[in-house]
Nucleic acid binder design. Sequence first.
DNA 1: GAGGAAGCGGACAGAAGCTGTCCATTTATA
DNA 2: TATAAATGGACAGCTTCTGTCCGCTTCCTC
Lengths: 184, 184
Amino acid sequence: MPVRADAQRNAARVLAAARRAVASTGLDVSYHEIAREAGVGVGTVYRRYPERDQLMAAVLSDILTELTDTAHQALNCDDAWEGFSSLFTSLALRTAQNAGLSGSLDQHGGPAVAQQRHELLDLTRKVIERAQGQGRLRRDLAWQSVLRLTGAPAVQGCVLGLEPDPAHGHLVVLTVLLDGLRTD
Amino acid sequence: MPVRADAQRNAARVLAAARRAVASTGLDVSYHEIAREAGVGVGTVYRRYPERDQLMAAVLSDILTELTDTAHQALNCDDAWEGFSSLFTSLALRTAQNAGLSGSLDQHGGPAVAQQRHELLDLTRKVIERAQGQGRLRRDLAWQSVLRLTGAPAVQGCVLGLEPDPAHGHLVVLTVLLDGLRTD
DNA sequence: GAGGAAGCGGACAGAAGCTGTCCATTTATA
DNA sequence: TATAAATGGACAGCTTCTGTCCGCTTCCTC
């Protein structure tokens, strides 16, 4: 017997809800919250992902797949700076949307996700080094440092209590960072 | 009868512990954790700050006092850019140390803290506009936007799971941001 | 150094929220 | 329509937090 249609539908709903929930709450989001967000019962979420790691692996894999696509496009872009800045922007916005993840990719996901991540890192390194090779991107920063900068626009506020303004805030940070990174 | 010596000692310990705890855990840190950090019983913390808002107000006021000092120094600095960049750096590092606060200053503290914050904001605006007036800081950003940038180095990680490296990470972001902000 | 008041610590009850299970009910397929 | 798969959500057990209370300790005064 094939997979039932409603089961497939719910699986998609749960994954989408998990992505949203992880993005807003973090990796320690409760199963109940995911179920609520998905509009299904907790039992359904537990049946689909008996282990928390399986759920996180699915979420992370989903994100990594999207980003790998973007990285390939960036590497195929004729202009090295344009490729770099578009990938940088994508990474930054994605990081901002998933502020809850912050560096805990290693603990979750297992070897399959690790492999996916390694692939994306490799692509990203190539994009950065190509832009540096063409003299468009400053060379005084290691590619890892450049990559880490993508986390900067994830800012949610400041000690002075200015309202966060996530809509335009990220873009301002991105603009200034890119201006600080380009060489011409 | 004057305040007992041990009471004074404990008050200082609790405030210091609360600052550390809020910085690492966030505004919703539990009283027990603060007490543990301070090395006192929970009762002592509750006696000192029966309302959570009182505790937060004390913490925020402490931070604001420090920063106001720095802002005064920045405004007295002969070189407008130097003044700006040193204040910017202080604000950024302080924000990074207090990532847990993120924009929730308004809900806490009451009018006294609000007044302190208003004063600091005013000083900061002056520092920024002075540097812009001297043509050292790019003029295409409103002072609020510039201020918001101080939150950027608070980055704790990125979607790619690179280890956070808070020690040098903040400095790299700061360098690139300042390079993207200066006009000469 | 003795007495009394102020302060202290931490046990404890009650509330909240999370995990993971179980089964009566619903739904899709043949 | 019959049947098996899938569902939802109640529920027990656990953890963690809040806020109080009271026996004990520490400090100050005389």
